[in-house]
Design a protein around this nucleic acid. Structure first.
Lengths: 210, 210
DNA sequence: AGCAGATACCCCGAGTATCGGGTAGTGTCC
DNA sequence: GGACACTACCCGATACTCGGGGTATCTGCT
């Protein structure tokens, strides 16, 4: 059944296009109005009205998810080749690249970053809260990479989650305070400081005992 | 002039008492109603009305600050003796104790933790946002400890901020995912995993080059 | 036939204005 | 120096405003 009525499917392309377009407008709105933009303002910026936004994204959390996905693509594109860990030293490179990409985002688009960080507090019970934040997504990648590396060597991988998300959390916290600091030292220096912790740390931990 | 009119000052004691009492009621309200409690509900729980809350705390951010301070006391009491770093190995102990205290909070009082994590988005410009979150406070302690240790050895201490807050962010992220995970392994195991990263890592980094 | 889009609305929670007591410190009159 | 009104300041409650997320309903396009 459902042999794709032409009248159903003919909007598919339009929907995809419009959605991308709306996300792009939302990004612009966030940049100019700040991370606390209202749905109304986003709609106006896109030259339309709230109804359209809600039809396409359901609610604010839906729009948030779309924006997060868009930002995530940016980050992921810069670390994807590092996610395959051949040996322990590769993790150091992953950390360095991830930190650089992350700080790059903070530096270039602070308002977008702030928006993406402010996970919308769904009024429903926190158990059924399916909203995934940016750091969650990145953390999952790192976790998977570490887990893969450990599994390939027959090691226990319950550690992977802690390390993967912890690592991401380290970078996030460093970035947050770098952003807030008045002097704001050069990005490369902070990246260097981050790497200097993890390069020897994980190298030892991953080859030795847990 | 103004030789402290007794009518001004006679409320001091009462105010302190009442404030503590209100914070305590707020904690109870958060526990039973969840992290998203409204001001109204908190007031009702305290057997009074919103006006009282607003008179004592100014706004929601003020109440948030009071709750954060209260929770911070709990954490700080458990790590204060570790904050004086004699040698590099002491940092490993600090990490272990901090992680244990932090995870302990998450385990015993998840709703309080969630509340404390949800930094209220002040509508004003983010520049003048003086609200300090729990992780900020903890991160500042760790930063100060590291900075002190480095300074005592004549090392550059611009690293301290990155390491101090990064470290705290690591624990926070690990805790967040531990809390969200369905199986939730024993606390001691996660603490062990966290320590295993930092004990060798900082030991190497703090004695060697930057 | 069926969806896109706009307008006008609802709802809920943060924050405020205003009112009526209550009580300890302060001045005054003897 | 003690009894009296008085004042300064607080406490607490009800009833509001205001703003933003989310929705009901209508028109129009293809």
């Amino acid at each position: 059944m459902a042999t794709s009525d032409g009248r159903d499917t003919r909007w598919e392309q339009h929907r995809q296009d419009r959605r991308r377009e709306l996300v792009s407008h939302a990004l612009r709105a966030i940049r100019s109005q700040g991370a606390g933009v209202g749905m109304e303002e986003i709609a106006v910026r896109a030259g339309t009205s709230k109804t359209v936004i809600y039809r396409h994204f359901g609610d604010r959390a839906g729009l948030y998810a779309a924006v997060v996905e868009s930002v995530h693509d940016y980050i992921h594109a810069r670390i994807s080749e590092r996610l395959l860990l051949a040996d322990a030293a590769d993790l150091g490179k992953l950390v360095a690249d991830l930190a650089d990409a992350y700080l790059g985002l903070v530096e270039r688009d602070p308002e977008i970053y702030r928006f993406v960080l402010a996970r919308p507090a769904t009024a429903s019970s926190p158990e059924t809260d399916a909203t995934v934040s940016l750091v969650d997504m990145i953390g999952n990648h790192v976790t998977a990479a570490i887990a893969g590396h450990l599994a390939a060597r027959g090691l226990d991988d319950t550690v992977a989650t802690t390390w993967g998300h912890g690592l991401t959390g380290f970078i996030r916290a460093a970035a947050d305070h770098w952003m807030a600091s008045p002097e704001r030292p050069p990005r490369a220096q902070v990246v260097q400081h981050i790497s200097s912790v993890f390069t020897p740390g994980f190298a030892g931990a991953m080859t030795g005992d847990t």
